[in-house]
Design a protein around this nucleic acid. Sequence first.
DNA 1: TCGAATATCTCGCTCAGCGAGATAATACGG
DNA 2: CCGTATTATCTCGCTGAGCGAGATATTCGA
Lengths: 149, 149
Amino acid sequence: MRNQGPEMEIVHLLRAVTVELGLRSARFASHNGMHPTDVRALIELMDASRAGEEMTAGRLGAALGLNSAGTTSLLDRLEGAGHVRRVRGRQDRRKVVVEVDERAVELGWSFFGPLIGKAVELLQNCDEREREAIRGFLEGMREASAGGE
Amino acid sequence: MRNQGPEMEIVHLLRAVTVELGLRSARFASHNGMHPTDVRALIELMDASRAGEEMTAGRLGAALGLNSAGTTSLLDRLEGAGHVRRVRGRQDRRKVVVEVDERAVELGWSFFGPLIGKAVELLQNCDEREREAIRGFLEGMREASAGGE
DNA sequence: TCGAATATCTCGCTCAGCGAGATAATACGG
DNA sequence: CCGTATTATCTCGCTGAGCGAGATATTCGA
């Protein structure tokens, strides 16, 4: 193996976390008659709403790596299930602003709530320096994985 | 919003990392004529090989959340592309042991290598206590997300 | 030795997502 | 203002990943 320092355990741990989160998300999806992409869309929508930003059809599709046709059918699915509403943009009426239904937000929280609670609990048992180390590591990994190519 | 302590920034950061890793994995997949599931399968296979365990068709399918039919077609795909070989189990000849081709391992490293390098670099700039904090946080999140329901 | 259990495969089907192109609204040079 | 380029979304037809049902082959237990 290329590297076998004590760092590798943490690297594999991070990968394991992403795998487990993905599987849990898939289980939640099929349990609620949704597809993995629908759950990812809901996450993006809740995140945008939390940041106070409008989410358009195009931005959502780009965030999920879908083309426009796939985005349309995703929105058809979500709208048909009553999770979102399509609203024409006010200034630019070509755009479709996607609004999340309150019950879909509740559904999302029933899924993420316990995980978030556990995370907050773990972080509250850290002192400031430890929290900063965790934050720095995650921030670094996000930048490394977001990068181009 | 339900909670707005300083912990939430880290929670969202963790989610952002998993999203970015997923997108990067999808880009890598399409860039190599593969599907996201194929990449996930390769990860599982390399992980098992690293742990010195044999990976059978059934175990692989279970790890990915596929049924037996989907697993068979996944293996057909991977075998057709030359990434894996099917080998009948020696003691139990119902089983199919999946062996990864060396070139597929190289392909995997070309994708994960830079990310792993960045992670190791970040971790080497930490002292022992900070590393332990990161390890503990990820371990806790893995346990929380792995749990049943 | 025989039936139950287990591992994988085959067959037919559904539907997520793609490519190509239509439609509609906006931006902008002349 | 007009015509053209650009942008945002949608429609249509299609491919193929993954599912359910059931077939096949191997092993285990009474």
